[in-house]
Amino acid sequence: MYDAPNLETRVTQTNTKITARGVQVYYGDKQALQDVDVDILDNTVTAFIGPSGCGKSTFLRCLNRMNDTISNARVEGEILLDGENIYDKRVDPVQLRAKVGMVFQKPNPFPKSIYDNVAYGPKIHGLTRSKAELDEIVESSLRKAALWKEVKDRLGEAGTGLSGGQQQRLCIARAVATAPEVLLMDEPCSALDPIATAQVEELIDELRASFSVVIVTHSMQQAARVSQKTAFFHLGNLVEYGDTSHIFTNPSDPRTESYITGRIG
């Protein structure tokens, strides 16, 4: 009874950011995703869960056309970002990826200094007019990624010299600095300790204010903690999609229930 009005206010605040209809993905002849329909909301954290190999990363990569870089991958169907089909011929995938940023499962800092890693996106897209502005973006991005305190005295050192967890937060800062509208995160916490995980989760919650966040995770607790919407994938199908509270307490599909309670996976 108390939940209902809350839900109400949230839904009125948010509108659909990404709409996917009938998405099919093939790797060569092998179909990896079938008929995925999803509406991803603005200012919302959406979690993708499901057993390994079910196509979570594949679908995530469809949303910023990273599948274009895999030579044998083929995407069919319709994905709209703010009502515009991103697979339309007129859309430049490079521009699209500036709007739909991505953090990968394995930390992949560039072999550059910490500063240059974060400044990479803003420099490429010409987001700043002066060095001071760039400094500011770098600092605020590192702060958002909860890394500023640890690296503020060593911005000129190599990003690859950080620990695994720090590298992952650096990659998050790097993605945030580009000022995307949607942030895709593929298991961003799989290399992190519980403290860093908590920091990243807090960050995700803050990011929700300005972006739409999609996160792939294998941790049910994490999905329950950070997300408002959850999508459950199984064997290339989107089985169930809905409010996180609903999916975790009262799933409508028996497969979802089995997975959440740990019977398949």
């Binding site: 699209l96 500036a98 940023g101 991505m102 394995k106 560039f110 990479y120 897209h125």
Partner: peptide, 27 residues
């Protein structure tokens, strides 16, 4: 040069030649 570096760069909206110049060649 690991594919993950290319992915990282493309994922930030860099073009191929930007990726080559700024990430791959330095690496």
């Amino acid at each position: 040069v690991p594919q993950s570096l290319r992915d990282g760069s493309y994922g930030l909206g860099a073009t191929k030649s930007e990726t080559v110049r700024q990430v791959i060649l330095p690496a």
